[in-house]
Design a protein around this nucleic acid. Structure first.
Lengths: 310, 310
DNA sequence: CTGTTAGCGCTTTCAC
DNA sequence: GTGAAAGCGCTAACAG
C-alpha cells in the first residue's frame, strides 16, 4: 500500500505537492503535476479514506436509513437506496446502509462518530420517529418523503398534488367528464407518509375546478381487486393514469400512462441538498417538491375515438 | 464534539486509560472504569470513526456489491443486503453500498483506499467479472452464491443439492412415485449463478437413487404458465415443494412446503467468514454450503390420504 | 493497573 | 509555484 510519502519521494516533491496535484486545490506546474500523477499511477497510490477523513474532517460518506415495514414495497426501497447511492457517487460520496432494527441508534451513531457527513431518510412514515431525532441531531439530514409534521426538517418529495392535477387535466383534455380515484386502503392511509391524502385532496379540489364528477373507490385490505371491479362495472371503458407509483426497474412497466414516483427524480435532488449542507451551506429547512414527469403509454383514450379502440 | 482527551482530562486519567476503558482491551480498575464511562456518557463522547480507523488500520466497514440485473428479483436483493447489514452490525461493522454501474470500480476503490475492510458480493452470476477481480484484490472477499468457477474464492451458498434431495425424500415418504421438476427457463440457466443446474442434477440423481420416475418441465420465457399447466394436466393431484426461493419479507409466503434460500441463513455465515479473515485468520478459500431448513405449509399430502383432501 | 508516546496517512496553514 | 510542519483523534506498543 503506497502512501503519499512514497509518491512524494519517488516524484521528488513534497507531500503537500502530491496532495495538491491530486486534489487540484491549488495550481501546480503542469510538468510536476503530470509527473506526480504518473508516479501515483505507477505505484497504485490511492489516498487512505481514514487518513483523508481525519485530516479533512469529512468522511465523504452519506448514511441511508431504509426501514423495512413488513407491508411496504421492498423493490421500491432498493430502487431508492440505489438511486441515492448513484447520486452520492456523482458527488464522490459513498453510502452506508442503516437497518431498520435500530434506525435511531444508527443515525445517532453515524452522527456522533462522524461516520457519515449526512443522512438520507427513506420510506418516511406519517409519524416518523426519525423526524424528531433529525431535529436534534447536529448532522445534516434530508428526508425523501414527507412526514406529517415537516417543521424544521429538510424534505424532498414528488409534487403529488401537481401530478394529480395534471392527470385530471389529461383526462379532461381527452374528453372525460367523470373521473375515478382508486385510493389507498384505510390502513395504508394511517401509517404511510401523507402522500395518499395529498393525492385525494388534490383530486377532489381539481375535479371541482374542472367541473368533473369525481368518484373515489377505496379497496378493502382483504379484497383489493373488488374495488377495481366496482369501478369497472360502472365504467367499462375507462382511461387510466397512475400517480406516484414507483416503476420496478426489474419488470416491464404497467401499460398505463403515469406520473411515476421516480427515485431518479427525487434522490438526486435530495443528495444535492445534503451535499450542499455538508459543504457548509445554510440549511434551507423546508420542503422541495419535485415536478412530476408524465409518461405516456396509451392508456388514455380520447372519448371521441373510443369506439374505434374496441 | 468531545474528544478522548476531553474525557481523559475530565476523568483525571490518561487517554490510553480512556481508550482501554471503552474498548475493554485491557483490565481497568472497576472504579476508574466506571468513572471514565460516566464522564464519557455525560460529555456525549464517541470515538471518531476516522481517527479510530486510521490508528487501528481498520475501518469496521464492509462493502456490499449488489448488481441489479434488469430481470433479477429486486426484493430478494434488498433482503440480502439487509441481512448482510444486520449480520455485520452483530460484529460492529457497518455496510457500504456499491452500485452496479461500476461494481468493479467500486470494489477496487474500497480496497485501494481501505474504505472497507472486506467485501461481500451478492447476486453472483455464473460468469461474474467480480470473481476475477476478487482473486487479484488484496482484500478479503466473500461471495454469497456460486460462480461457475469458484477456484480461489470464498463462497457461501445454500446447499441446493441437499435441499433437492431432501425434497425428494419428503415426497417419497409421502408415497409419491413420480416427481416433477419445474425447472428454470433456458435463458436463466445461462446467466444466473449455477444453482438451477445444481438442482436439476441433484433432482435426477436422487430420483434415480430413490427409484422415482422423474419429469422435468421447463417453462418458455414467453409463456411461463404453460409449463405448469402441462404438469397439472398429467398429474392433477400434486404435492408441491419449492427449493431455493427467497421468501419475500413483505408478503405472505406462498402456501407451499419449501426449502427456502433464506438470506438469514447464508448472510450471517458469509459475514462471519469475512470478519474472521479481516481479523487475520487464514483464508479458507473454498465453498461453504449452508444446510437447508425445511418449512412446512401443508402442500405435501400423503398419497394414501389424497381422497380425503379433496 | 496506568501513563507516555509514537505513529496511522492525510490536509492545510504558514512560510518561502 | 513549492516545501515544512502542525495537527486531525485515536490505538497500541512500551515503560513503569
Amino acid at each position: 500500500m503506497a502512501t503519499i510519502e512514497d509518491v512524494a519521494r519517488e516524484a521528488g516533491v513534497s507531500i503537500s505537492t502530491v496532495s495538491y496535484a491530486l486534489s487540484g486545490k491549488r495550481s501546480i506546474t503542469e510538468d510536476t503535476r503530470r509527473r506526480v500523477l504518473e508516479v501515483a499511477q505507477r505505484l497504485g497510490y490511492a489516498p487512505k479514506a481514514a487518513a483523508r477523513a481525519l485530516a479533512a474532517r469529512r468522511s465523504s460518506i452519506i448514511a441511508v436509513t431504509t426501514p423495512l415495514h413488513a407491508d411496504t414495497d421492498q423493490t421500491a426501497h432498493m430502487a431508492f437506496a440505489m438511486a441515492v447511492t448513484r447520486a452520492a457517487r456523482d458527488h464522490d460520496y459513498d453510502t452506508l446502509l442503516l437497518v431498520h432494527d435500530d434506525a435511531l441508534e444508527g443515525m445517532r451513531r453515524s452522527a456522533a462518530t462522524s461516520l457519515a457527513d449526512g443522512i438520507v431518510v427513506l420510506d418516511v412514515a406519517a409519524r416518523d420517529p426519525r423526524a424528531d431525532l433529525a431535529r436534534e441531531l447536529a448532522c445534516p439530514v434530508v428526508f425523501i418523503g414527507l412526514p406529517a409534521d415537516p417543521e424544521g426538517l429538510i424534505c424532498v418529495d414528488l409534487d403529488f398534488e401537481a401530478a394529480t392535477r395534471q392527470a385530471l387535466d389529461v383526462l379532461r383534455a381527452a374528453g372525460h367528464r367523470t373521473v375515478g380515484l382508486l385510493a389507498q386502503p384505510e390502513d395504508v392511509l394511517a401509517r404511510e407518509s401523507n402522500y395518499p391524502m395529498r393525492i385525494e385532496r388534490a383530486f377532489h379540489r381539481h375535479a371541482d375546478e374542472l367541473g368533473l364528477s369525481a368518484v373515489v373507490v377505496r379497496p378493502e385490505p382483504a379484497a383489493p381487486a373488488r374495488a377495481i371491479e366496482t369501478l369497472l362495472d360502472d365504467h367499462p371503458d375507462v382511461s387510466v393514469i397512475t400517480v406516484g407509483m414507483t416503476p420496478d426497474p426489474g419488470r416491464p412497466p404497467l401499460p398505463y400512462d403515469a406520473f411515476p414516483l421516480d427515485p431518479g427524480l427525487t434522490c438526486p435532488v435530495a443528495v444535492d441538498l445534503l451535499v450542499r449542507m455538508v459543504d457548509g451551506a445554510v440549511a434551507p429547512a423546508g420542503v422541495t417538491l419535485v415536478p412530476p414527469v408524465q409518461v405516456t403509454r396509451g392508456s388514455v383514450v380520447p372519448v371521441s375515438r373510443r369506439a374505434e379502440v374496441q
